[in-house]
Amino acid sequence: MDENEQKVHAQQSHYEEHEDNDSNSALSPIPQNDKNEKDDKNNTVANVSLGTGKDNAEIVENDVLAGSSSVRKPTEHYSGDEVNRPNLDEETDTFEAAKSTRDVKPPAKAVPKLRRTSSSLPLRLVSLPKVSCREKIIFCIDHSDEMFRNKFLSHGSNANPVFKTLVSAVKQFVNTKSYLNKNNQYSLILLNDGAQLITDLSRSFDEVLMMLEDIANMPNSHDYEETDVDKVFDLSSMFKMILELCGLNENPKQFVAPPYIVRVVFLYGRSDSRLVFSSGRKSFNDLIQCPQFFLDCVYIHEPPDDNNIVGTIFSSICDLDIGGTSHVYEVGTDRNMACLFNVFAKLLAHPLQRPKQKEKMIEYELKL
Rank of each mutant, 00 (worst) to 15 (best):
Q6R: 14
Y15S: 06
N183L: 09
Y224H: 13
I198G: 00
I198A: 04
E302S: 15
T227F: 06
G323Q: 03
D193R: 09
I317R: 00
M147A: 15
L267W: 01
G311V: 11
K99Y: 10
V343I: 12
D145E: 12
N307P: 02
L212T: 02
L209W: 02
L352D: 00
T227K: 07
N285K: 12
L235M: 15
Q353D: 09
D272H: 10
M147Y: 04
K367F: 09
K171Y: 04
Y268D: 05
A345E: 13
E359W: 00
K164L: 10
N4I: 09
L123E: 12
D206F: 06
S278T: 13
N160Y: 02
A257V: 13
P219W: 00
R203S: 12
L243G: 01
C290G: 00
K231Y: 07
S326R: 02
K177V: 09
Q12H: 07
F284T: 00
F266K: 02
F284E: 07
D296I: 07
F314L: 02
L209D: 04
Q172D: 15
K105Y: 01
S271I: 00
A110G: 03
P107C: 05
G311P: 02
T333N: 07
D39E: 14
K35N: 08
D40M: 09
T325Q: 10
N87Y: 05
N42Q: 15
L248N: 03
S279W: 00
R115I: 14
G323F: 04
F293W: 03
G53T: 14
R116W: 08
S68P: 01
I313H: 03
L295A: 06
H301T: 09
L248F: 05
S236R: 03
A66I: 02
I189D: 01
L190P: 00
P259T: 12
D272S: 12
R281Q: 14
D214T: 12
A26H: 08
N158R: 11
E225G: 15
N220F: 06
T165A: 05
P259H: 07
G67Q: 07
P291M: 05
S23W: 08
V208Q: 08
D272C: 06
Q357R: 05
S187W: 03
D93N: 14
F233I: 06
P112C: 01
T325Y: 10
L121H: 10
N62E: 12
A257L: 02
S144G: 13
